[in-house]
Design a protein around this nucleic acid. Structure first.
Lengths: 189, 189
DNA sequence: CGCGCGATTGAGTAATTTCAAATCTAGTGG
DNA sequence: CCACTAGATTTGAAATTACTCAATCGCGCG
């Protein structure tokens, strides 16, 4: 039987039905409405989330100016959380909110560790995922430093064509570290 | 008996003497002279390296202009490699070279996987390390986008005070995504 | 029809880069 | 101990890139 989370884990470690059922039993299901917060600055971060449906943005806000920088989007089959606060079990320094009505699966740190210790495959999955995540962040950093506004935008289109018309341009600008005006000028000229 | 690598792993998973000996047997020791390359663009990346002694820089070069961006430094107790090429076993897209005479321990991907499968603690160590690495990269990205040149520099001083006088300022500028001239102006005014 | 949000445009501004030249410093050989 | 050199750092001036602020536009929805 197919399940988005199972498919995702299986891109790294094949699972038996029992194994997947065991994994799934460690998650909680949540539905969240558009504009609601999944994680809110200052509050505890109990879970990391796998997205079944919908679209979210994770961002930090600069106190001084109130401006926000979106560090991640998540749509179906992506993971999202305030990772630092989740791993340290400390208060969130970021906000994550829903751009659409969403359905997610959450796993607590305790369950994550339990699962990792009980099932080597799950630990391995986390390890591989974290390593590849690191690589892609590194590429993003590189592009941010070495690339012009236009290069960053073109790279985004290429990498996430399906997000272009799903997410307001002003949010994409924020993700790319640009003002919305600058982004707007890019695809005019 | 104390060993830098053992100490490092033990910040995450305690090890018995036998376990550490087993781990260590999967590594190769290398000495490299100042100015020599540990990894060179276009060549295979056989190992990831734990630094015992010395200081290295990892950077990418922009073909068009020949300018380089240093994405990482490594000194004692740090890991360094071209992670993407190492994990994919493809050709390096980066250069890593020694700023001082160096001694490193290298582990191949094959041995890494063997070790991870045989010893859960090692897999766990890799997983934790990758997760924290991800978090700190994310912070760096955030600072790069939201922070001014000065904020980035001040953050660097605070985070790596021991590197300030060990590494030429022009390299630090590159790491911070600044021209060396701009960096120079920062601590004058 | 009109409201409201997101997107666009223009003008002026701020931060950082580039290029060129001058200066400093540590290590080397005489 | 000094002069010399290569590498590293600093300085100035002009140019570039992206930002800010303000105003306008466009479109979907009630």
């Amino acid at each position: 039987m197919s399940h988005p989370l199972r498919d995702h884990i299986q891109t790294i470690s094949p699972l038996s039905d029992e194994e997947f059922d065991h994994i799934l039993s460690h998650f909680v299901f949540k539905k969240i409405k558009k504009h609601a917060f999944l994680v809110q600055e200052g509050e505890a971060v109990k879970y990391e989330y796998f997205v079944l449906k919908g679209c979210l943005k994770a961002y930090v806000t600069e106190e001084a100016t109130g401006k926000e920088f979106i560090y991640q989007f998540a749509v179906e089959d992506w993971w999202i959380t305030d990772r630092e606060a989740f791993l340290k079990q400390s208060a969130a320094t970021v906000n994550i909110d829903c751009l659409e009505d969403c359905e997610v699966l959450g796993i607590s740190l305790e369950n994550r560790e339990k699962l990792g210790a009980a099932l080597w495959k799950y630990e391995h999955y986390l390890c591989v995922k974290a390593n590849w995540g690191y690589v892609s962040l590194q590429k993003r950093l590189q592009l941010m430093i070495m690339g012009s506004a236009r290069q960053r935008y073109e790279n985004f289109i290429q990498q996430y064509p399906h997000l272009i018309n799903r997410i307001p341009k002003s949010f994409i600008a924020s993700y790319l570290g640009l003002s919305r005006e600058t982004l707007s000028r890019l695809y005019r000229n």
